[in-house]
């Protein structure tokens, strides 16, 4: 596996996390009494676009690498999601949440590697 492949794997996971964060931003808009339609559409569109890019990148990577080799990297997504939600959505992180995320990440890596 070369540096380009590692970059693409990490970039695909970043796209997944970014897509979810934009979707969350969009859905948060729906709580306001006056929904800013343009902001909602922008965030929703960016979310769907980022997730489409993740899907296509992941499909492309699966064409070049064994599934068993590639899938353990999916264990990265809960960790990246926690960091992203904490930084961009200002969501509160607790030690318990970090512990759960770590267990899920290791579990996902084991399930995928099997």
């Amino acid at each position: 596996m070369n540096l380009t492949a590692i970059f693409l794997i990490i970039f695909s996971q970043v796209c997944l996390v970014a897509g979810q964060i934009w979707l969350k931003h969009a859905m948060n808009q729906t709580h306001h009494e006056t929904v800013k339609r343009s902001t909602f559409i922008l965030n929703f569109g960016l979310g769907i676009s980022a997730m489409t890019l993740w899907f296509l990148l992941w499909l492309g990577l699966m064409r070049h690498f064994d599934l068993s080799y590639l899938y353990p990297f999916e264990g990265l997504s809960p960790l990246l999601m926690a960091a992203g939600a904490s930084i961009f959505l200002k969501e509160k992180m607790t030690w318990r949440l970090w512990g759960g995320i770590l267990l899920i990440s290791i579990g996902l890596a084991l399930v995928s590697a099997s």
């Binding site: 318990r96 759960g100 290791i106 579990g107 084991l110 590697a113």
Partner: peptide, 16 residues
């Protein structure tokens, strides 16, 4: 190995 992974995911979800 997959059973062990499933158990860890379940434990993580339960912790959260």
């Amino acid at each position: 190995l997959r059973c062990a992974g499933i158990a860890l995911v379940l434990l993580g979800v339960w912790v959260i």
